[in-house]
């Protein structure tokens, strides 16, 4: 079985995000970029499935400008067998991603598509669900445990009420949650080997996909600055202050 793993290039989680002065998005020039952490978990899970003998090939895919190839190389260095780069310069929205992935799924015929539950830049959390609908295959989102047995896969989902366990038929779409696994450290010799692994590239016309923007972003604003706190001397003063501010 083949697994398609989708990764996205995002601003690294350690970076302090700054909004552009004109409100037109966040600053990415000269900012450290990295693979979306939930996608890294997806790559790790695919590799563990291959190591357990359930999967024969792990294919990493991304959509982005030339620099997004760096994240594919990271996936290859972690252990993916090959990569697919879909060239696209502009920002892309979940439905567009899902359309591209559907086109690739039809070409590649994977038994499983794994992706992060959300990207930490736009926090949409929609791509997996949209892909499942377009591809007309089952979905299992927010996975914290995945067990493959034959033609089905048992997925433990993290839901508000606790954990939900479902079985879905393969091929399926699974989105990964934080507790699914802890991604491995990349080994230095594997980074070198990754440079020689195959990377196919497509353009959107190659895949017959068009991506008209469906959502218009009006403005990006930073969160309001935190005003300084102060110390109170006693419980009475605390209660009085809270009352004064209308908080209790």
């Amino acid at each position: 079985m083949k697994v398609l793993v989708c990764v996205k290039r995002v601003v690294d989680y350690n970076v302090r995000i700054r909004v552009k002065p004109d409100g037109g998005g966040v600053v990415t020039d000269g900012v450290k970029m990295a693979m979306n952490p939930f996608d890294e978990i997806a790559v790790e899970e695919a590799l563990r499935m291959r190591e357990a003998g359930h999967v024969s090939e792990v294919v990493a895919v991304t959509i982005g400008d030339k620099k997004s190839q760096e994240q594919l190389r990271t996936a290859l260095a972690m252990g993916a067998d090959r990569a697919i780069w879909v060239e696209h310069e502009e920002a892309i929205q979940p439905l567009g991603v899902a359309r591209v992935l559907k086109a690739l799924a039809e070409r590649e015929q994977p038994g499983l598509v794994l992706l992060g539950k959300q990207a930490i830049d736009d926090d949409c959390g929609q791509t997996a669900q949209m892909l499942a609908a377009l591809w007309q295959r089952p979905q299992a989102t927010y996975a914290s445990e995945v067990v493959i047995s034959g033609e089905t896969v048992r997925v433990t989902r993290e839901v508000d009420a606790g954990l939900e366990v479902i079985d879905v038929d393969l091929p399926a779409v699974i989105s990964t949650d934080l507790r699914l696994n802890e991604p491995r450290y990349v080994k230095l010799p594997d980074i070198m080997k990754a440079k020689r692994k195959p990377m196919d590239s497509y353009t959107l016309p190659d895949l017959g996909v068009e991506l008209p923007p469906l959502v218009e972003r009006l403005e990006t604003t930073p969160p309001p600055a935190r005003t300084g706190g102060f110390k109170v001397e006693s419980v009475e003063e605390l209660v009085a202050t809270l009352k004064e501010k209308g908080l209790v």
Partner: peptide, 22 residues
């Protein structure tokens, strides 16, 4: 290179990856 995945007590964690010799 430094070992990766060593805990605060100096013991290997899951995913411990020894450094390599260059």
């Amino acid at each position: 290179t430094g070992d990766m995945g060593v805990d605060a007590a100096g013991l290997p964690k899951d995913g411990y990856t020894p450094g390599i010799d260059i």
